[in-house]
Nucleic acid binder design. Structure first.
Lengths: 340, 340
DNA sequence: CCCGTTTCCGAAAACCTTTCAGAAGCAGCC
DNA sequence: GGCTGCTTCTGAAAGGTTTTCGGAAACGGG
C-alpha cells in the first residue's frame, strides 16, 4: 500500500546515490571489468539499498532478447498438457526465463491471435504442447523464432518435436507380462483414430511376435473411459475366457476392467494380470490391486523440450521427431500367480 | 526459416513506405483523429503489407503498462489450481492481456524470486492461486502492483481474495438430501487440519440444525483418498447401520464409500444416498451410480479473480475475502428410494 | 616539458513507440 | 498585409538500459 504509486527505482537513482554516472553504474552492476573495485562496491551497495531491479523491458528493447518463451497449448490445458507444462516451467525457472501461457482451446483462429501477440511481445521462442500424440499443423513457417513441439509432434519433419514412445511403452508392458509367465494376452484400448491407441496396439503385437506369440482376440477399441473398460471386460471374459493378462490403453480402461473382472469372480492378478497406461496416480494407486502401468515421463518430456528450445534459441536446433522413452511402474496388478 | 535472422519490422519502416513521418504513422495506426483519411489509408496499407506488429516492449516502456499479469501458483499447479488458472487465462485472453506463469512449488524462496523477476518485467498485477482454502501469507505488502488471491485467501484482510464457499456448498448437499427425504445423515471427510474439511463439516451441521436434526455419529476424518472412503464406509456401516445418507468431503472418498457399500450389499441410492465434493469428473461420472456432488465453480472463481484484478489495476480494488457460491450437480447417487 | 600508457569514468547513441509542441499551409477576417 | 484559427503533418523528447567511444587524470620515461 505504502509506496504503491511511487515511481520505480531506475539505474540513474542508483548512479546518483553512488555518486557515479549511469554508465559506470551499469558496468558495475553487470560485472564489467572497467570499474575500480571500490567504486563497484559503492554502486552495489546503492543498488541494494534502493532494492533496484533493472527494467526488463528496457533491457529487452535494447538487446532484442526478452528471456521469455511462449507456451502455447492447442487444446485446453488438459491431463497431458499439465505435466509437460510443469516440466517446461521447471526447466525455464532454473535459468532466468519466464513463461507466457496461452491457451488456444483448440481454435486455430485463437491460436493465430496468440502467436501474433507473443511475437509482438518479442518472445525468444515457443513451445507448442498438444493434447494427443497425433501430428498437428506446423506453425514454424515464417515465424522469426524457434518452435519446439511437445507431446503432439509437428507434421513438418524439419521441426523439432518430442513425443512419448508409445510403441516401446506398450512393449515394456508386454515384456513384463511375458516375464511374469503370462502367455494369453488381450488388448483393450481407446478410439483407433488416436495415434496413441494405434502405436500401443502395434507395440503389443510386436513384442508378442518377438516371443513367437499372437495377441488373444481382436483389439477392443472404444472410449478411453472406465465405463468402456467395464464393458469391454465383460465382452472379453465372455469371448476369451482363457486369457491370463490384458494390456489396457489407459488407466481408466484398466480400472474399469479390474472392477468388472472382480465382479465376475476373476481374481487380479491371480487369474488375469492387468497393465494400464498413463500412470494417472489417482486411478493407478487406488484400484484394488494397485495398477501396474506405463508412465510416459511427461514432466521429463516437457523439461527436455524446454532445454532443446534453449538450444534452438542459441542456434543449435535439433530437427526431427524425438521419441522419449516410457517407464513401467510395477504395482500389484501384475504380481505372480498365487501358487494355489 | 526464410527470414529468421531478418530484423523485425518497425514503425519507421511503415512510415517510410507510406511516405510519412513516424509520428503520423503512429497516429494513423492508433486511430488518432489528427490525420487525413487518405493518409491513414496509405499507412494502414503499408503496415498490412509489411505485416507490422508494434513492439510491445517499447510500448510498455513508454506507457508503464505491460498488459501482462503474473500468475503465481504457490504449490505445484495441481488439481484445484488448474481450473482456476484456466478461468483466469480465459478472462485475460478476452482482453489483450497475457499471463506469465510461475510455479513456486511451495517454496517461499522460489516465490520471492519469482515475484522479483515478475516485478522486473513490470507486470501490471498478480494473481496468487493456492492449493488449499487455508489462508496463506500475504505478499501484497510493499508490492507496487495489485494482487488478487484465488482459492487460498490472503491472511491479511486488506487484500482481495476469492474462495469457494464451502460452508454453503455442504449446506446445498445437505438440503438436497433432506429434500429427498433422508434424515439420518453421516459425514466422512479428509484431514481436519484442512479448512475445507472444517468448513464442510460446519455447513452440514448447520443445515441439519436448521431442519431440527443432528448428524448421525461423529465426523469421520481421514485422508482425501478413495482408500479412506472404503475404510470409513466399513466402520460407519458397522457402527451406524441405520444411516440413509452420507455426505463425503471429496469425490474420492465418495467413490470409495460407494464401492465398499456396494460390496457390503448396501444399495446406492436405495439404502444410502451419497454426495461427493469437487465434481472431479473422472470420478464423479464413473462411479456406479454416478455421483451427486458439489462443484466449486473453480473456473468461474478464476475468471472472477482475474476480472477483479483488472479492476484493481484500474484503481478500483475490492478488498476482503469474497466467498463464491458452489453448485450442486445432481446425478444418480442421491436418487429417490425405489418404492419396493 | 612532451609523449605514451594505463585506469577509470562519462557522454551519447541505440532500441521503438507515443505524445507534445510546433510548423506549414490555407482560409477567413479586419 | 497582417492576424487568427483550423487542419494536417513533423521533429523531438521521453521512457530505462547497455555499449561504444572518447576524455580525463595520473604517472613514468625521455
Amino acid at each position: 500500500m505504502a509506496g504503491r504509486r511511487s515511481r520505480a527505482v531506475t539505474i540513474s537513482d542508483v548512479a546518483s546515490l553512488a555518486g557515479v554516472s549511469i554508465a559506470t553504474a551499469s558496468k558495475a552492476l553487470n560485472g564489467k571489468d572497467d570499474v575500480r573495485a571500490e567504486t563497484r562496491m559503492r554502486v552495489l551497495a546503492a543498488a541494494e539499498q534502493l532494492s533496484f531491479q533493472p527494467n526488463a523491458l528496457a533491457r529487452g528493447l535494447l538487446s532484442g532478447q526478452t528471456r521469455t518463451v511462449g507456451l502455447l497449448t492447442s487444446d485446453s490445458v488438459g491431463r497431458f498438457g499439465i505435466p509437460v507444462l510443469l516440466g517446461a516451467e521447471d526447466a525455464f525457472g532454473a535459468g532466468e526465463m519466464a513463461v507466457m501461457l496461452c491457451d488456444a482451446r483448440g481454435d486455430s483462429i485463437r491460436e493465430q491471435h496468440h502467436i501474433r501477440t507473443l511475437l509482438s511481445r518479442r518472445v525468444d521462442g515457443l513451445i507448442v504442447v498438444g493434447e494427443s500424440t497425433d501430428p498437428r499443423p506446423s506453425i514454424s513457417r515464417d515465424l522469426p523464432i524457434p518452435v519446439v513441439y511437445a507431446y503432439a509432434p509437428s507434421d513438418c519433419s524439419d521441426d523439432v518435436s518430442f513425443v512419448p514412445d508409445d510403441v516401446d511403452g506398450a512393449g515394456l508392458a508386454t515384456r513384463h507380462l511375458l516375464a511374469m509367465g503370462r502367455r494369453r494376452i488381450a488388448h483393450i484400448t481407446g478410439p483407433l483414430d488416436y495415434k496413441a491407441a494405434r502405436d500401443r496396439a502395434e507395440g503389443l503385437r510386436a513384442a508378442l511376435a518377438d516371443a513367437g506369440l499372437a495377441q488373444v482376440g481382436e483389439t477392443l477399441s472404444g472410449a478411453w473411459s472406465q465405463r468402456w473398460g467395464r464393458h469391454a471386460a465383460e465382452m472379453l471374459l465372455m469371448a476369451e475366457p482363457e486369457i491370463d493378462a490384458v494390456v489396457c490403453g489407459s488407466d481408466q480402461i484398466a480400472a474399469g476392467f479390474i472392477e468388472a473382472a472382480r465382479e465376475r469372480g476373476r481374481r487380479v492378478p491371480d487369474d488375469v494380470a492387468v497393465v494400464g497406461y498413463d500412470n494417472w496416480e489417482v486411478l493407478s494407486t487406488e484400484t484394488r490391486p494397485a495398477l501396474t502401468t506405463v508412465d510416459m515421463n511427461l514432466e521429463t518430456l516437457g523439461r527436455t523440450a524446454a532445454q532443446h528450445l534453449f538450444a534452438a534459441i542459441d542456434g543449435r536446433a535439433t530437427p526431427g521427431v524425438h521419441r522419449m522413452p516410457c517407464r513401467l511402474v510395477i504395482r500389484d496388478s501384475t504380481g505372480p500367480r498365487s501358487s494355489q
